[in-house]
Design a binder for these strands. Structure first.
Lengths: 356, 356
DNA sequence: CTGTTAGCGCTTTCAG
DNA sequence: CTGAAAGCGCTAACAG
């Protein structure tokens, strides 16, 4: 004549595994096994599951489980700009997709935005490993903390950091290759449109001071690659990777008399390049007759079908997959090395010899 | 006389708050306060922090904290397609950005992909509240579980579910409005290109059977809205929201003799509409003279500048923000109601009276 | 196959 | 302002 554990009319408190165990007449550990798929007789399991159903218990609390196991199954993905800006860039999105593919449905991706102000979230968030999508010096403190916590870290195209596994592409080399192509075609008066060099999102003239303060590895590498061929290459720093930015920069660079105008423009992303091409066309210039425009990325851009952009195709999804598999390996206690992926030059129809 | 758990010479195991407390010569609770910003004398706090530094202790373990507090600060965002497909759609990305804006840097967004196979992750992941971005019937089980767990849920443009707060836009109404506009212009032979009706990503003829099995609320609502005006409206179900899909569908619909060809096409998204327009142009048809094309969304589409698309502008970011603030309210124990946002008709240059 | 026993690392009453 | 005690809910040894 046991007092049946009348659960307060199901009001506030949820049932716990212990309650279920008691109702099923088994021990806690047995009940636990029933849920984690351990080896118990199917009769017992049935009994436990029935009890659970009765109590409206729907499985172990993830919080408790993660404390106990020391694992949450969550991988943090840290971006340094707001979500919209980050993922509007097709390469970044592709990389995220690659991560997700590799990690599988088994683990969730915790999107953490570190715009630099409060580094709090990243310190107090629950995750087992972190992937930085481009990481700049001002993450140093967070990185330090995660290192202390023994959280494996991987950076996709970020600044090199001790203890952070690097997944990179050959930005500098590929950029140099592209520049060499343009040089070979005969161009000598060039300009570039770079991606932002710092976290400041503001269009600006490309100056040496700016270059010195650069914190964005990708932009800097691409610039340095191009400068291997064109030593003092100048131009404009865009406020982001969009065709609008490219357009603005293009207008600025191309609205000059033919003798001063660059005969070729190296844009650091395809979106920028598309914008530059539109600017050229708006100025009644013909590409590539009047101006050669090359990009970087190999993005399939919606609605850009008139031209076949000369560019470098980078393995974007692959970057994500590599990062994902590095994380998996690190969590398994292995010690994988840095990853370096390579891009492929694609000569399209937007490049040609200079006029005249 | 308990056996003291000797932590293997500080090798693997991290220091805990208890260790710090001991070294600082204070109690655990005091040490805790030092980190959570509770009220303790600054002398004591200093002592604790120094001890922490000495032990390489970088703050409370998020897992333990979240168990103790019953809160993790994580909001789950559930999408039903792979990351790439979901966020390539500008509206979905904008909504995600809205969520992130509203929730602030304080809380992380846990991206959970529920493609229907293993519903495991969503059940075992740590989060305090969930936001579904479009949710279909096959999430029923997960929803059931979360309800049992008392996890607040919000669905952006999903199927209605008991206990899931709905954030919707006036899909049906707006679609009807658009259809009415086309009707007023004099069109009588129409076709539509819909978004996928189910999780199957495959282009298909729009049939009644398909409509009956539809699980995607958005697509269905937009279709029903249009059918309020054009009762038996037929057409094609696209495999996704992209201009490529629109192009394929457009080719299919428009490659017919003028007498059979629809004089107007209602596309369920702007990307689809752009594709349809390209198809029309590829077939040497002039928009809107030979065919009227309208979209839905109000997306700014890269590189689509020749036309001003007739469409309906939906408050995409706003959807996300509303969901975010609903989550905040729910977590605070309030009981906010469903949210319904409205779209605005935009008459551009891609619609006009039928030829002849 | 099942039960007993200890905590995971932290916060939070409750006293002093 | 500080300390002592009591778990949050679960799982992992280890016995039986």
């Amino acid at each position: 004549m046991g007092v049946h554990n009348q659960p307060h009319a199901g009001l506030a408190s949820r049932a716990t595994l212990a309650d279920v165990a008691k109702l099923a007449g088994v021990s806690g550990s047995t009940a636990s096994l029933a849920f984690s798929g351990g080896s118990i007789s199917s009769a017992t399991r049935e009994r436990v599951l029935t009890a659970a159903r009765e109590l409206n218990y729907s499985g172990p609390d993830p919080r408790a489980r993660s404390l106990r196991q020391g694992r949450s199954g969550i991988v943090g993905v840290i971006i340094e700009d707001r979500v919209l800006n980050s993922f509007r860039d097709p390469m970044t999105l592709a990389a995220l997709d690659g991560i997700s593919q590799e990690l599988g449905e088994g683990s969730g991706l915790l999107l953490l935005t570190a715009t630099g102000d409060g580094e709090s979230t990243i310190q107090s968030a629950v995750f087992d490993a972190a992937i930085f999508m481009g990481c700049s010096p001002h993450l140093a403190r967070s990185i330090e903390i995660m290192r202390q916590r023994n959280v494996p870290m991987v950076a996709i195209e970020g600044q090199a950091f001790d203890g952070v596994l690097a997944v990179n592409i050959d930005n500098r080399h590929a950029s140099a290759e592209l520049a060499a192509l343009v040089h070979t075609l005969g161009h000598r008066r060039l300009a570039t449109v770079t991606l932002p060099l710092t976290s400041v999102r503001e269009r600006a003239q490309l100056t040496d001071e700016l270059v010195k303060t650069a914190t964005t590895a990708v932009s800097l590498d691409r610039l340095l690659g191009a400068r291997q061929v064109f030593a003092n290459l100048g131009g404009i720093v865009a406020a982001g990777s969009s065709s609008d930015e490219g357009f603005a920069a293009g207008m600025e660079l191309l609205s000059r008399p033919a003798e001063e105008r660059p005969t070729a423009i190296l844009a650091q992303s395809d979106l920028l390049a598309v914008g530059v091409i539109r600017a050229a066309e708006a100025l009644a210039l013909v590409v590539p007759r009047d101006v050669t425009v090359v990009g970087f990325d190999g993005a399939r851009i919606e609605g850009f079908t008139d031209h076949d952009l000369t560019t470098v195709r980078q393995p974007a999804t692959e970057k994500g997959r590599a990062a994902g598999s590095a994380v998996t390996a690190l969590l398994a206690g292995e010690t994988p090395g840095d990853v370096s992926l390579s891009s492929v030059l694609h000569v399209g129809s937007t490049s040609g010899p200079p006029a005249g």
